[in-house]
Design a protein around this nucleic acid. Structure first.
Length: 595
RNA sequence: GGGGGCGUAGUUGAGUUGGUCACAAUGCCGGCCUGUCACGCCGGAGGUCGCGGGUUCAAGUCCCGUCGCUCCCGCCA
């Protein structure tokens, strides 16, 4: 028979009691984390959000209560009252914050029973299947580790709001039911019942709305808001995610950086890190050439080296031919990796060939007996020694080389660099490395569509000095865009926006939109820009990713309360699900079935 | 859309070249136990080897298909 909560009140939480409380009468409310039944003595670890406290049931103190305690099982919800007792020094538990005391229980209320949980409610269950954890997410979330992740997430959001409030930002809301736009990610669509055959789109970001706030004269805007993108998932990508979305009027890039650096400093303080601005800046071009990525992980070295000049005249035809046909020969030096077997290297090569389309991975070892490798005989000792010197290599290292078109080669080496960083444990996981990546190209050629598309988004301002090239040489135009990169993750991106109608029209034209299309899709924005839009710019940060990195997690699922699986389903609610014919009729929608 | 990994008691894993009853730990149930905190000891229950098909005298094991989870490529203004 269950007991009622009645007027029972918690006097302390399960992380609070210390030896100073010796003799206090207390009431704890929480879950049975662990039961150790020694027969006459029963120890119960009671857990709540704040910690764990050991409770002792002794028949000599209260026999009926002791009998009742025999029925307790894992995850029962209880209220226990009793006296705090300092433990004998021999029985102190140093692993618990409350380990110097225990409660001598004289009252026990069982508020609810619990079925045996499918997995233990404790940390270090990393090998429990993801499927189970997601199906019983409400239990998974009971684990202290996840609770701490969400406490950190809350503190980050709170820090952001407090800091930006001090900086005169206003938190303003934008619609969730909005308009589908042609550029960018695939939209999640919401059918309109009132306007059959028409659809809202869930926002990919509040981009245009926040710009309109600037036109409205709010000057500084922030919103911590959900965004939706219907694309395939990754460990660091969920279809719905939370942005810290910001916009400011009358600012240049450096003003945005200063605000953000101040904000990140405060966020890092939450995990005891002292990271001060200004953050390092790296151009997009340099990031790609040296790290093979626009979001380089700068926690470790191993830079991509350009060996094209040496390769141009070398005796290895694959290399010299590639260079003479406008290709490059680039590579990187894996420290201490000379011990890698031919098979290890072939595994890497197979992967890079398949995923990045390189034609081969050449290698040179500097082992105990000097240089070795299949291409050594073509290059010669002297040249190989020179290559190692250029890459800063030493005895015991492995030089890996790729020949091919520059972009693809850099991309492949960038992926290889990260893999080696993991394999060779070159990354100090306790370290944080943050930087700005700047000077992105404004546009890139979409080979499929046969036209230019915005690398960032169509509202990004070109650099003032590149403005004239928008028509003559669109691919050369650089953008006032920037990304914030932490430990190899893009945690934010933004830009100074276009605030002039004529420039925005020119941009749409460069993207291949006719004036009519531009008017239909973005007419309201063009209108707004013609009514005195101030210069403005901003950024959006990924709250989920920041929380993931600061809590040391490898997946966004650990910091999103109810995340989706890789196939975009929710294991707990079993969404998405089919809906009734009536619901579809209301919306004027018919479902096509395959087969 | 493509590729890799995984799928065996509630859970986590083992299971050789196909061949007595599919094994262990943990959890669960029962018993004993007054200083445990990974409590201990004794006993017990617990299985459509993801699902479907095939090869074979015989399939957890080999083959084909399929589903789910996961990592990556494509995709993600």
């Amino acid at each position: 028979m269950l007991d009622h909560l009645g007027s029972l009140k918690r006097t302390h939480d399960c992380g609070a009691l210390r030896p100073e409380n010796d003799g206090n009468r207390v009431t704890l409310l929480g879950w049975v984390a662990k039961r150790r039944d020694l027969g006459a003595l029963i120890f119960i670890d009671v857990r709540d959000r704040y910690g764990v406290t050991q409770v002792l049931f002794n028949p000599e103190i209260a026999e009926d209560v002791h009998n009742k305690a025999k029925t307790l099982r894992s995850e029962f919800v209880i209220a226990v009252s009793g006296i705090v007792r300092k433990r004998d020094p021999k029985t102190v538990n140093a692993k618990l914050a409350t380990g110097e005391i225990e409660i001598y229980a004289d009252q026990l209320h069982i508020l609810n029973t619990a079925a045996t949980p499918p997995f233990p409610i404790e940390d270090n269950i990393e090998n429990v299947g993801e499927e189970l954890r997601l199906k019983y997410r409400f239990l998974d979330l009971r684990r202290p580790k996840l609770q701490n992740n969400f406490i950190l997430r809350h503190k980050i959001a709170l820090t952001v709001r407090n800091y930006l409030d001090q900086q005169n930002f206003l938190e303003l809301e934008t619609p969730m039911l909005t308009k589908s736009t042609p550029e960018g990610a695939r939209d999640f669509l919401v059918p309109s019942r009132v306007q059959k055959g028409r659809f809202y789109a869930l926002p990919q970001s509040p981009q245009i709305f926040k710009q309109l706030f600037m036109v409205s004269g709010f000057e500084r805007y922030v919103q911590i808001t959900r965004c939706f993108r219907d694309e395939d998932l990754r460990a660091d990508r969920q279809p719905e995610f939370t942005q810290i979305d910001m916009e400011m009027s009358f600012v240049q890039r450096e003003d945005v950086f200063a605000i953000l650096e101040g904000m990140m400093t405060r966020i890092f303080q939450l995990v005891g890190e002292d990271i001060q601005g200004p953050f390092p800046q790296l151009s997009y071009a340099e990031a790609m050439n040296r790290y093979g990525s626009d979001k380089p992980d700068t926690r470790f070295g191993v830079m991509i080296e350009d060996f094209s000049e040496a390769a141009r005249t070398c005796g290895f035809k694959v290399f010299s031919d590639t260079v003479s046909h406008n290709g490059v020969v680039k590579g990187l030096c894996a420290p201490g990796a000379a011990g890698k077997s031919r098979k290890d290297i072939e595994t890497l090569e197979t992967w890079l060939k398949k995923d990045f389309g390189i034609s081969g991975l050449a290698w040179l070892k500097w082992g105990d007996e000097g240089f070795s490798g299949p291409i050594l005989k073509f290059l010669g000792e002297e040249l190989v020694s020179q290559l190692f010197a250029q890459a800063g290599g030493k005895q015991g290292d492995l030089l890996l080389l790729v020949a091919g078109p520059n972009e693809r080669t850099c991309q492949a080496l960038g992926a290889l660099r990260l893999q080696l960083g993991k394999d060779l444990q070159l990354i100090d996981e306790s370290k944080f490395a943050i930087l700005w990546v700047v000077d992105f190209p404004l546009l890139e050629l979409d080979a499929e569509a046969g036209r230019y598309v915005a690398l960032h988004h169509p509202f990004t301002s070109p650099l003032d000095e590149d403005l004239e090239k928008l028509e003559s040489n669109p691919g050369e135009v650089r953008a006032k865009a920037y990304d914030l990169v932490l430990n190899g993750f893009e945690i934010g991106g933004g830009s100074i926006r276009i605030h002039r109608r004529d420039v925005q029209s020119a941009m749409f034209k460069a993207l291949g939109l006719s004036p009519e299309e531009a008017q239909e899709k973005f007419g309201f924005l063009l209108d707004a820009l013609s009514f005195g839009a101030p210069p403005h710019g901003g950024i959006a940060l990924g709250l989920d990713r920041i929380t993931m990195i600061l809590s040391g997690e490898k997946s966004l699922r650990e910091v999103i309360a109810f995340p989706k699986t890789t196939s975009a389903t929710c294991m707990m609610t079993e969404s998405p699900s089919e809906v009734s014919v009536h619901q579809l009729l209301d919306l004027g929608i018919q479902v096509l079935r395959q087969g």
